[in-house]
């Protein structure tokens, strides 16, 4: 079973209510499913489709556009090594060679123990600290071969468990909008008047 859990259905409904149109919740809900299952399963996409009242094909159509969604089992840790210009200039290719040799797998695949998936990635917005990588989208800066080996050892030993949650969990916290404070998200088709603080100037 990889439909959303009962708890996550409650979370999903909160998320959907924040948007004027339910389909806007598509990407956040696919993230939620990936957080639950570690990757995006067919059943989860069918469930998301039910929740926002679109077809499963529409969910897959959108989700397959985005690189963070993975449709196959993925390591507990996704290690993305940046290869775009700033990192390339500072030795990203050597780092990738080193990573492939250390892990014994080619970029784009997962170690046999299922712990680490290695990937080539594009610019991670940390260009001054090149070469960089991300583990489950948490940055590591100025990565030397030695630092890479240390990182892998720490991931294997569990030393980073508190800092880096398993793949799929983006943030360890989630925005909470208090019910007594929210303005609400009416469908734009149902809104005819301007906001209260704007005086409409005479035509």
């Amino acid at each position: 079973m990889s439909r959303l859990s009962d708890h996550n259905v409650i979370v999903a409904k909160e998320i959907i209510a924040r948007y004027p149109k339910p389909k806007s919740a598509l990407i956040p809900l696919v993230h939620l499913s990936q957080q639950q299952n570690g990757y995006v399963t067919d059943d989860a996409m069918r469930h998301v489709a039910e929740l926002i009242d679109v077809t499963p094909a529409e969910v897959y159509g959108t989700a397959s556009f985005y690189e963070m969604f993975r449709f196959e089992p993925t390591g507990k840790y996704l290690v993305n090594i940046c290869g775009t210009m700033s990192c390339q200039l500072m030795g990203a290719e050597s780092l990738m060679h080193h990573a492939e040799h250390t892990l014994g797998v080619k970029a784009g695949s997962t170690t046999s123990d299922g712990l680490i998936t290695l990937q080539h990635a594009e610019c991670q917005a940390a260009c001054t600290e090149a070469p960089t990588l991300q583990v489950n989208y948490r940055h590591r800066y100025r990565v030397t071969p030695e630092a890479f080996d240390e990182l892998i050892a720490d991931l294997r030993s569990g030393a980073l468990d508190a800092e880096i949650p398993p793949h799929g969990t983006l943030g360890r916290n989630r925005q909470q909008i208090p019910a007594d404070r929210t303005v609400g998200a009416p469908d734009p088709d149902d809104v005819t008047e301007g906001p209260a603080w704007i005086q409409v100037s005479p035509a």
Partner: peptide, 26 residues
């Protein structure tokens, strides 16, 4: 939100707006 800067009647005025954090996916 808790401090009254976001949501209904911000700082006791007519002004109200929700801010929703939305996540991209690459």
């Amino acid at each position: 939100y808790a401090a009254g800067y976001i949501g209904k009647n911000i700082l006791g005025t007519d002004f109200g707006v929700d801010i929703v954090l939305h996540t991209g996916a690459g």
